[in-house]
Structure formats: C-alpha cells, structure tokens
Nucleic acid binder design. Structure first.
Lengths: 204, 204
DNA sequence: CACTAAAGCGGAGGTGCCTCCGTTTATTTA
DNA sequence: TAAATAAACGGAGGCACCTCCGCTTTAGTG
C-alpha cells in the first residue's frame, strides 16, 4: 500500500494551497479563461453575470472564487503575464533566436494592448498591491532579457545591446497612443527595433 | 437703461462659466452639502440615490450636475480643502496666533480623516487628475505656512521653525494608521508638536 | 457499493446605478 | 403682466452588482 502522502512535489515553495475539488478547479479555470476573452473584448467593465453565464456557472460561483472584480482582473492579468513568459521559452525553442525575439515582441504588443484595456482598474491595482507590479514587471523583463541574450549569443543580433535599453524602447509603446492606428504603429516600431538590432550582427 | 453686460467682475480669470439658473444653483449647492455629510458618514460608497433624496431632488438632477461619482467626490473634496483654508483665516482673526495654529492643526486631523475615508477613490482621482493634487496640496500648505509665520512673528512660538518641517510631521498622521485609536493618537501628536513649537518662544 | 459530511453550486431577490424623456419652472421678450 | 422659450427637473425602467441559503456533487469511509 503506497503512502498517500508521497506524490512528490509540494510541501516546499507553496505553503498550503490545499487541493481543490475537481469541479471547483474546472469551474475556476473556465471562469478565468472566459474572463480573459471578455476583458479583451469589452474592457474591464464586461458584465460579470455574462462571464459567469458564458462559463456555464452561476453568478454565485463566480463570486465565491473571485470576491471582487479586482480579484478576477488580477488573476487574468497574472495569467496574461505568465503566458507571455512561457511564449518566450517556446519561441526560442522553435525558431532562430532573432526570429524568436521579433515574434515575442509582436506578442508583447498584444499584451500591452490588453493592459491598456484594463487601464483604470490596473492602475489602481498596481498602486494598491505593489507586489503585483514588481512580480510581473520582473517576470516580463526577465523573459525579454533571456531572449536578447540568446539572440546575441547566436550572433543573429549585435552583441553590444543592453536588454534594458530595448525594454525602454518598448516602453514607448505603452505611453504613446491612443490613436486608432496604434497597433500598426507599434508593429512598425518593433520591426524598426529589430533592424537596428540586426545591423552589424556577426552571423548574417 | 443700464447695460446688462456690466455687472462688474467676470470676463477675466473665469473664462465663461455663464450664470446658472437660480434653481439649478440652489440644487447643486444642496447636493454638494448633503454629499459631503454622506461621504463623511458612510464613505465614498454612499448611495447616490440616497444623497439625491436627502437633498430633495431627483436622481436625474444629481446626474446632470455630476455625471459620475468621481465628479461629485472631487467637488466635495475641493470644498473640504477650501473650508480648511478659510478656517485658517478665521482662526487667526479670533485667537492668539499660537492657539489659532493649534486649533487649525486639530481641524487638519479631521480633514485627513475624511481623506482616508475617500482613500481609494481619491487615490485614483489624484493620479488621474494631477492638477487636483497640486492645487489642493498647494492651498493647504500655504494656509499652514501663513499660520506658522503669524505665530512666529507674534513670538508665541519659536522663530526658527520651517513650515515645511511641520507639514512633514503632520504627514505622519496621514500615513500612520489604521488603528481605531487613530484619532486620539493624532490629537496627541498635534499637542506634542505644539509643545515643541512653543518651547523657547520669546513671548510666553 | 452505500453512506455521509463537507465542499461547492446557482439563481432569486434586493439594491444601486444611470439613462431617457415627458413635465415643470425660471427667465426673457413684448 | 402674459406669452414664449430654453433650462432644469425627476422618476420610471432596465441593467448589473452581490449576498444568501437551500440544493447538488464530490471524495472519502466502512
């Protein structure tokens, strides 16, 4: 008879999140997913009742999992960041380093687009809950840093660039808008940046 | 027949606020007054319908004057600041300069209490609308400065204090709490400060 | 498998928000 | 003073929020 306590993992960096009942977990995941779509489509003011309905659960369930709209927004936002960082790892595995970097930056633009959609709510969250800010901005700039280093190491971009400078340049995307051509404009900025990064690279 | 355009005033620092109909002005004033009480009593989430009712107007009227809750909060807050600054002038006229200063600081504590009640809403307002912040903090520190200078000039407090230092000390009141004894604690801090200020004063 | 306690579900219902528009009122003009 | 007009009023109605609690499902236990 195997010791039921030894499923490996756990008992270390997570204090005691105690496993959720399967249905609860399922509903929670579905809610977050639907909410992400809804926020992207309609902004933070998307109707919570609508989200619950589309996730196929009652409004009560939504509120049990996320006591306030802000909770839900925060989780969605963290998920977004997580996805962005994961994408970095996948891309670098499936593409030449410079292409991975470019694709990732294009995706970064999408992420920023979401972020501005959530603007008011997020601003409040980020000042209220300061760990959220440091967590996420750390994760994102870390991902970008490793992409740049990989590209530089492979010789696909020049070796003398500083990751934080590129980060800074992308920052311009965030503060720039709100014109309707923002998306294209940002896309062009990324291309331009990449040209600059490729210029004078050792290997092609 | 007198020229209807010459009611003196206007045409200078106010661009063109064009006079309001008498009933509109009356209702607006009443709304602000009631809202101030309501926010103080129940926090920023006080019911707007309740406010309208207590002011004796329909909810439509409230919304015509203040299209969003934030508008109303801002006006109430500005009024609060205005009141605080006026009080400085009145107090200095009716009391010895050091007493005026002390009374004013006590009132400042009340003001801060209100401000923390509005915390979330205000934080958002103050980052969104940066003139609001500079306007009001300028007005307040100006009032305090003149009180201190008057008290110093009359010899009731020592002459070697810098108004901005005192301001800074009072700042502690804002950031300190949230204990239930916050009010008393703040009152004691003011007394303490005054003792320090009076110590070594020329005239008594 | 049957049973049970605990966990989770869901939606009715009470409340507040905010818009819209027919009615009322202050002000201007004659 | 009376009529005309623009401004302001107010509340019904529709929608979203969120709480509360009786019902359903899950995950253990014998």
């Amino acid at each position: 008879m195997p010791d039921p306590q030894t499923t490996a993992e756990a008992t270390r960096d997570t204090p005691a999140p105690k496993p959720m009942r399967a249905d609860a977990q399922r509903n929670r995941d579905k809610l977050v997913e639907v909410a992400a779509q809804a926020f992207a489509a309609d902004g933070v003011d998307a109707s919570l009742e609508e989200i619950a309905k589309r996730a196929g659960v009652g409004i009560g369930t939504l509120y049990r999992h996320f006591p306030t709209r802000e909770h839900l927004v925060e989780v969605v936002y963290r998920r977004e960041v997580e996805g962005l960082c994961h994408a970095a790892e996948d891309l670098v595995r499936e593409h030449p380093a410079d292409v991975a970097l470019e694709l990732w930056m294009q995706r970064f633009v999408d992420y920023i687009a979401t972020k501005r959609g959530l603007a008011t709510s997020l601003r409040l969250l980020l000042t209220t809950n300061s760990t959220l800010f440091s967590d996420t901005s750390g994760r994102v700039s870390g991902a970008m840093r490793s992409l740049i280093e990989a590209a530089a190491a492979s010789g696909k971009i020049r070796a003398d660039v500083d990751a934080s400078d590129v980060m800074h340049a992308l920052g311009g995307i965030y503060s720039a808008p709100n014109t309707p051509d923002w998306r294209e404009r940002s896309g062009r900025l990324v291309k331009l940046l990449m040209d600059g990064l490729r210029f004078g690279a050792k290997n092609q």
